[in-house]
């Protein structure tokens, strides 16, 4: 099986879909001739032509807005927002138009658009290239929100997103584009090329939206997380030697309630991790779900580890990033309670 980076896996998914479905179009800033600042669409314009893969002006509300018009008319646009931090000019279009067209028209119209965007920190991007805005989208009925953390899932989830009848926000943890990252920024960079999760099947396959992935089975504590934090959690669990069950949520809206609830009922302990800021973050929602469904199974208060409630700093990035040490502390707290 080929070993691909997440970038290559995403490109492969778009390649597969461009070849399979003439309604698929791909556009965004720098995605055409150049192939995207992260190279995700490299070579696709050359292969499929300018009408299928093209550049746009620097106008996110246009990228999403024309995508909505195309999607409503039956095309399958997969658009790129260069960084998740740039999505806000399109927020009106995403939340009040894309998310609602099916419902408000009583299903006369729909909006099957995919909006890809690199998310998260760890690349010294400062506050305008490091944000994790998932909760701003998971709060919106009508959207689906996914975030893969492996090349295999990236390809399968992107194909699912591009085949989905509704709008999908596709968040790509940019620190994982080239290899897994466990939060230890001083360690040598790893590559997907020799990692088991870098194995990506050729051709078409899909991973259903709404299904979590059990990254590591365990019985002592459930860690609910997604994106870069999956590998941070794994490293912390190995350091402590605790038998944790790490669940990579993958689909943030809808959440896989069954897998979450089943695991927490089994372990009786729960830690929720994300890189995004704490207050009103997705962890709050997940903990509420756990509390509603699993309260009588809990042996300890649920812990959460998140980014601080401050803008993502440039120079102090590793003081901000919720690394292994903080995760270990949370795990110890929940195990000792």
């Amino acid at each position: 099986m080929p070993q691909l980076t997440m970038i290559e896996a995403l490109r492969d998914a778009m390649d597969v879909m461009l070849a399979r479905d003439p309604k698929v179009v791909i556009f965004g800033e720098d995605v055409g001739y150049f192939g995207g600042v992260f190279r995700c669409t490299s070579g696709l314009q050359k292969k499929y032509g300018e009408e299928r893969v093209f550049d746009t002006p620097i106008n996110e509300s246009a990228i999403v807005g024309i995508g909505i018009g195309m999607a409503a008319q039956g095309m399958k646009p997969c658009v790129e927002i260069q960084f998740a931090d740039y999505v806000y000019p399109a927020y009106d279009q995403i939340t009040q138009e894309a998310a609602r067209i099916r419902h408000r028209s009583n299903e006369q119209f729909s909006c099957p658009i995919v909006i890809r965007m690199p998310t998260g920190g760890g690349i010294f991007g400062g506050q305008t290239h490091s944000q994790s805005p998932e909760a701003l989208f998971t709060h919106v009925a009508g959207l689906k929100v996914v975030q893969p953390c492996t090349p295999h899932d990236a390809k399968g989830l992107l194909i699912s997103a591009m085949e989905d009848p509704d709008p999908v926000i596709f968040l790509e943890p940019k620190r994982l584009y080239n290899g897994p990252f466990n939060g230890d920024h001083k360690a040598p960079a790893q590559s997907w090329k020799n990692h088991q999760l870098g194995e990506v099947p050729e051709g078409h396959y899909s991973i259903p939206i709404g299904k979590a992935r059990v990254h590591r089975e365990g019985s002592a504590v459930t860690i609910l997380t997604y994106g870069t934090m999956v590998f941070v959690a794994e490293a912390a669990v190995n350091t402590l030697g605790v038998d944790a069950e790490i669940i990579d949520l993958r689909s943030l809206l809808p959440l896989d309630l069954e897998t979450i609830e089943e695991s927490v009922r089994k372990t009786g302990r729960c830690v929720v991790l994300h890189e995004a800021t704490k207050t009103s973050g997705l962890a709050g929602e997940i903990i509420a779900i756990v509390q509603e469904a699993c309260f009588y199974h809990l042996e300890a208060p649920v812990q959460r580890v998140t980014g601080w409630d401050a803008p993502y700093p440039h120079a102090l990035e590793w003081d901000y990033f919720p690394g292994q040490e903080r995760v270990c502390r949370a795990l110890q707290a929940v195990m000792e309670a």
Binding site: S61, G65, I66, M70, D92, Q96, S105
Partner: peptide
């Protein structure tokens, strides 16, 4: 489908027309 938010759909018309052309 009329949104009720002003202006947002002006650009949808452009996207719809692009789809027609494509």
């Amino acid at each position: 489908t009329v949104s009720g938010n002003l202006g947002t759909q002006y650009v949808h018309a452009v996207g719809w027309a692009m789809a027609n052309a494509l």
